[in-house]
Computed example of a mutant assay.
Amino acid sequence: RPGLLEPLGVHRDHRGRGYGTAITLAAAAALREMGASSAVVCTPSSNVGAVATYRSGGFRALPQRRDLYREG
């Protein structure tokens, strides 16, 4: 049972201090305690800060996937 870790954010005044990584690790630990077999994130690759934060928390990037939608 995978757990989704989203969304995550750190106010710009507090960036670069490791808070994002700490939040990522704490959220992954909480998911594990709730019985998740893995943790996943889904963020645009253009969001460089988020990608860096998730990587620092131990996540690895997978190939990009394009969202599909149908006009209503």
Rank of each mutant, 00 (worst) to 15 (best):
R17I: 01
L8M: 08
P2L: 14
Q64P: 05
S56V: 08
Q64D: 10
R1W: 09
R32T: 02
G18L: 01
P44N: 14
A61K: 06
A39Q: 04
S37Y: 12
R70H: 10
P63Y: 12
G16L: 06
T43E: 10
G3I: 09
N47K: 08
G3V: 08
E33W: 09
S37E: 09
D13F: 08
A39E: 03
E33D: 12
V40K: 00
G3P: 01
V48H: 13
G57W: 01
Q64K: 08
R70S: 11
A26W: 02
E6V: 15
G16K: 02
L25C: 10
G3M: 09
R12Q: 12
R55E: 10
G9C: 05
V51F: 03
R70E: 10
S56W: 00
P7C: 11
G58H: 07
H11N: 11
S45A: 15
M34P: 05
T24W: 00
A27Y: 02
S45V: 14
L25R: 01
R32A: 11
L5M: 10
R60Q: 11
A22T: 00
R70C: 13
A30M: 09
A52R: 03
D67C: 14
R55W: 07
L31V: 07
G9F: 01
P44W: 15
A36Y: 00
A50F: 04
R65A: 13
P7T: 11
R55P: 01
